[in-house]
Computed example of a mutant assay.
Amino acid sequence: YEGEYKAGKKEGRGVYRWANGNLYEGEFKAGKKEGRGVFRWADGRVYEGEWKAYNVYNGEWKADKQEGRGVMRYANGNVYDGEWKAGQREGRGVWRCTNGDVYEGEYKAGLAEGRGVLRLANGDVYESEYKAGKFEGRGIYRY
Rank of each mutant, 00 (worst) to 15 (best):
R36D: 07
E90D: 15
Y57T: 08
K134D: 11
G105N: 08
E106N: 07
N22R: 11
G3Q: 07
V46M: 03
E2A: 07
N122A: 02
K33N: 02
G82N: 07
G139R: 01
Y74N: 00
R45T: 04
R142I: 09
R119H: 01
N99M: 12
L23S: 13
W95V: 05
G137H: 08
A132Q: 05
Y141R: 14
R13E: 11
K108M: 00
G133A: 05
L23E: 15
K52Y: 08
G133P: 00
G14I: 05
Y126H: 15
D101G: 05
R92L: 11
G68K: 08
I140E: 10
G114H: 09
R138P: 01
R96K: 14
W95Y: 14
A63H: 12
G3A: 09
K62I: 02
R92E: 13
Q88T: 13
R17S: 09
K33H: 12
G31R: 05
K10H: 08
R96W: 06
L111R: 14
R17D: 03
G116F: 01
E27T: 01
E25Q: 15
Y130N: 03
G68L: 09
E48H: 05
R45H: 09
E67Y: 07
E4T: 05
K131G: 08
C97F: 15
E50N: 14
Y103M: 08
G3S: 06
E90C: 11
G12D: 02
G26R: 06
E11K: 01
A30W: 07
R89H: 10
N22T: 05
V94C: 04
A53I: 00
R13A: 12
R69E: 02
Q88A: 13
T98Q: 12
K32F: 15
E50P: 07
W18C: 13
G110N: 07
K33Y: 11
N58M: 13
V15D: 04
V38I: 06
W61D: 04
G14K: 08
S128P: 08
R92W: 09
G91P: 06
G139I: 08
R119K: 15
M72D: 05
E4M: 03
V94A: 12
G114A: 11
A30Y: 11
G87H: 11
A75F: 06
Y103F: 14
G44T: 00
K33M: 13
Y126M: 04
N20A: 03
A112H: 06
N58C: 13
Y74L: 09
E113N: 15
Y126P: 00
G59L: 08
W61F: 13
Y126D: 02
